[in-house]
Every structure is written in C-alpha cells, then in structure tokens.
C-alpha cells in the first residue's frame, strides 16, 4: 500500500501575540511547526505502515526551510519526502496550492492520500477536497479513524456535528484527518539519526504535471484586498475588591440586565 501524506509548515499561531500599543501582530520569534492536523494524518499513515507495511511518502509545498518538517516526518518513520519549491508557486491561494500538489501527486503511485483537516494558519480546510476533485477521487473529511478492509476498500469513521458516520470507501481516495484522532508518536532516536542521512527530493515546477497558469499568484482566483487586526477596545471597568464586594457588583449587573430579579 502506498500512502502519501500532504503536510504543511505553519507558524504556531497559539504563540502569536498582538502588540499591546499598536495592535499589530508580532511575528518575530514565533516558532514554525508541522501543522497539527497534518501530524495526525501522518500518524494515521504510520499506523498503517506498522500494521501492513505501507510505504509512506510525505509531500509539502513551501520554501527550503520547510525541509525541517520533512526531516521530522523521517524521524517519525516516513520513507520518502518531497519538497515542492519554486518561485512560481509563491502567492498561491488554496485552489492554486491544490493544483500544485495534485500536479505532483499525478507522478506518484498512491492508494491513499492523506491531508490534515485544516492548517492552523489559515483554517480553511479546502486543499484536501480540492486535491480530490482535481484527481477525480472520492473524499472523506474530518476522519477520526480508518480500517483497511483488504481488496480496494477501507472503512472510515467521520466526525459530524452530532455524532459520527461510518463510511465504506473505495481506494484510492483522499482523507482529511483530525489531530484529535490519535496521539502522534515522538521522533525515535534512531529515526532522528537516520532523518539527516535520508535524502529529500526537491521538485520544481518542471517536475509536476500541471499548466503553469494554474500555479502561484497567477493561478489564484482569490486575493487579499486588505488585512488588519481588530484593534483594542477601551479598557473595561476593573475592580480589585474583596470576593464579597465582587459578588455584589456582579449581582447588580445581572439585575440591571434582567438575568435575575
């Protein structure tokens, strides 16, 4: 079984702070990490490797520094890593990104393509389903777990608002996975040693099967017209009082708002 996991390097958005005076985003010093849902997807693939000896390839699009997450994936147990990097890829929205990844996937063998549900920098959850459409494959999003039924079929559990669904899916297919679906393994010591000996394949736009007009900024239907932070509201009434006094202040407010009589 060949599994390809699409992963992304993202800034750890939980570490981002706003400048308290200017209200602007402070990007400096924010660490870059493997996107959490993608790590959940990689773990799912590695579990299939443990069970059935699947061959796991990780694929990312990004600048050279994104090699860091590919090394991390090697150290967790991935067999092959590909970095898609080219100036022509820059400025891509989700549609252009999905065309780029699909272009690379067309030159690879796969039974399963796994992506994270969404990346924490954009939270769009779009690239996985868009890849599935370009490759004319069935998709299941919000996957919690997976069972290989043998032959050309898997059974997946998909999370929905008020419970879950069990779906039988023909492979090859595209799955988008939740980070909460499993506990991603740590890099092993041997894995870390080997990670730096393994070779990352670097692919540019000549290596993928897609028209150049679908790539990067030119291939992106959407544009950011402007971006802004929400700014700061005037400070609230702040009370540093005893618990009993605090209780009275709150109750008065609740009365004023007709929450209590």
């Amino acid at each position: 079984m060949n599994i390809i996991v699409c992963i992304k390097q993202v800034p750890d958005t939980t570490e981002i702070r706003l400048d308290p005076v200017k209200g602007t985003m402070i990007r400096e010093g924010v660490p870059s990490i493997m996107n959490p849902d993608d790590k959940g997807g990689l773990e799912m693939a590695l579990q299939l490797k443990d069970l059935y000896g699947a061959h796991v390839t990780v694929l990312t699009m990004g600048p050279h520094q994104a090699e860091a997450i590919l090394r991390e994936a090697f150290a967790m147990g991935a067999d092959k890593a590909i970095l898609l990097t080219d100036k022509k890829f820059a400025g891509a929205d989700t549609l252009a990104t999905s065309h780029t990844l699909a272009g690379a996937l067309r030159s690879l063998d796969y039974d399963l393509i796994i992506t994270g549900r969404q990346a924490i920098d954009g939270d769009t959850a779009q690239v996985g389903p868009q890849i599935a459409e370009h490759l004319d494959l069935p998709q299941v999003t919000y996957v919690e777990n997976l069972q290989y039924d043998g032959d050309k079929q898997i059974t997946v559990r998909k999370s929905i608002e008020d419970g879950y669904q069990l779906l039988e899916v023909e492979i090859p297919c595209v799955l988008t996975v939740l980070s909460s679906s499993n506990e991603a393994r740590y890099m092993s010591v041997r894995g870390i040693m080997e990670a730096f000996e393994k070779e990352i394949e670097i692919w540019n736009s000549d290596r993928i099967t897609i028209n150049a007009d679908k790539l990067g900024l030119n291939g992106s239907p959407t544009r950011v017209a402007k971006s802004f932070t929400k700014g700061l509201k005037p400070a609230s009434q702040l009370y540093e009082v005893s618990p009993a006094e605090a209780v009275d202040i709150i109750i008065n407010k609740l009365k004023e708002k007709h929450i209590v009589n």
Partner: peptide
C-alpha cells in the same frame, strides 16, 4: 461553514475552478 459546507464548498469550487473564502 459546517462540516457539510466545509466538505462541499471546496469540492464544488475546484469543480467550477473558482475561488472560495472559508469561514
């Protein structure tokens, strides 16, 4: 932007080759 809309939206946008802005 429900589990259904977030599953359907990107699939449809790719089929129609148009832009989609999420959430």
């Amino acid at each position: 932007a429900t589990t259904i809309g977030r599953d359907l939206g990107p699939r449809v946008s790719a089929r129609l080759e148009t832009g989609l802005t999420a959430d």
